[in-house]
Write a protein that binds this DNA or RNA. Structure first.
Lengths: 226, 226
DNA sequence: GGAGTCCTGACGGTTCGCTGACATCATCGG
DNA sequence: CCGATGATGTCAGCGAACCGTCAGGACTCC
């Protein structure tokens, strides 16, 4: 099995056609015929790649994309649309899609793009880690414990912790944190991130003044490590 | 500077147009007007991305692509062509191109694709283990180790090291370093670069007074070698 | 309206990086 | 071979950047 592909597409003919071709190529395929179903299946089933139609009943492709990206879905997404306007193409790519195909398209071209995207993505592997040190995080329950005892975290603190955890071991810049946690896109001038980091350290580090897990990387950002 | 882009394109109007638009976006741009020149410049200058026309005098785009890939060039390549047949698209993608745009194309779309490719490539590169001698560099974590032991580097030292590493084996002039690390564009009169090189040698070379990796090339700049 | 939460701006400590002076080295002509 | 010349190595100190910290006020949600 070469990988799992989720096709979010409301046109049955197109959806089944894609599934057939992808399965012939050796992919495992799931279908979703509207936006909300697509979001749910992407997050539950964790496909290796999502083919996402732009025009969908209920929730358009942009919102689907934003939603799953905000939920931490990091696999490549290939956008599919009938509209040919360039502004849409740009919007799709900039809002987190990895590639873009305009209908009508050739199946061979689509398969080639799928393959290229998966080859790129296969180098990056996922972290399923759920904690660090004596700290455990239960994402489903949204509960954090330290040495077994629950630690109450404010919403922003929890989101910040998740953003760091999703990239455990890597340096995350303040801008990235601002974008992924707060949704802002601007450069930083405030001490907002720092303040919340301090609070996280106070609640999660054994010695907050000498942090061993939530580390500062000067001039670059913060790094969470086990 | 967002990255270095090599444009291999024989049509002067198109080439200059691309260069202007890319430079406005903050990329550093080089042009090559035929295949062999493109190959040479890609291998020498080590761009972060290559925009490659399919139809070129002397050596067509496919051969250029094959040649530079065989020579170990791993950065993304965006193919550019007037032909619209799908067979060509597939051939381009399968032969190692990362994306494909058909003329006529909108500049905004092209720029968006360039950005998407570079973003993807940068995340892939972060996981690759690179270094020289006993020194390893983890770009994602921003950690440098020597013989397994972490070496604390000041921000500028780290950035300087990366700039040298990105062009490993090639001589990098002080002006280039000033531009890529410090963002300045002026001619050099200070000992700033030298000072930091000294510090890097002290921390990373086995014998700082007889460097084996961070080498001085008199009247030209510095060169990093394995 | 009260409790909790979040952001901002200010302050201070620490580290960093640039500068300028001097030492040393490579190169080349005599 | 030797000295002149210009390029590079080295060092210390000061000003600035950067981050930790905190308190006040605005906001939200009961």
């Amino acid at each position: 099995m070469k990988g799992r592909v989720l096709v979010v597409e409301d046109n049955p003919d197109l959806a089944f056609g894609l599934r057939n071709n992808l399965e012939i190529e050796g992919y495992e395929v799931a279908l979703a015929e509207d936006g909300p179903t697509g979001v749910a299946r992407a997050l539950e089933w964790r496909p290796d790649l999502v083919i996402l139609d732009l025009m969908l009943p209920g929730m358009d492709g942009y919102r689907v994309l934003r939603t799953i990206r905000d939920a931490g879905f990091g696999q490549p997404v290939l956008m599919l649309t009938a509209r040919g306007e360039e502004s849409d193409k740009v919007k799709g790519l900039r809002s987190g899609a990895d590639d873009y195909v305009t209908k009508p398209f050739g199946v061979l071209e689509l398969l080639a793009r799928v393959e290229a995207l998966l080859r790129r993505a296969s180098t990056a592997r996922e972290n399923a880690s759920v904690g660090f040190g004596r700290v455990r995080i239960d994402r489903a329950a949204r509960i954090v414990t330290r040495g077994g005892a629950p630690v109450p975290l404010a919403p922003m603190e929890y989101d910040l912790l998740l953003a760091l955890l999703d990239r455990e071991g890597a340096v995350v810049s303040r801008s990235d944190l601002m974008r992924s946690v707060w949704g802002y896109d601007e450069s930083i001038v405030s001490r907002t991130v720092d303040t919340h980091v301090v609070e996280l350290r106070r609640k999660l580090e054994d010695d907050p003044s000498a942090p061993r897990h939530i580390l500062t990387v000067r001039k670059a950002g913060y790094r969470l490590q086990d």
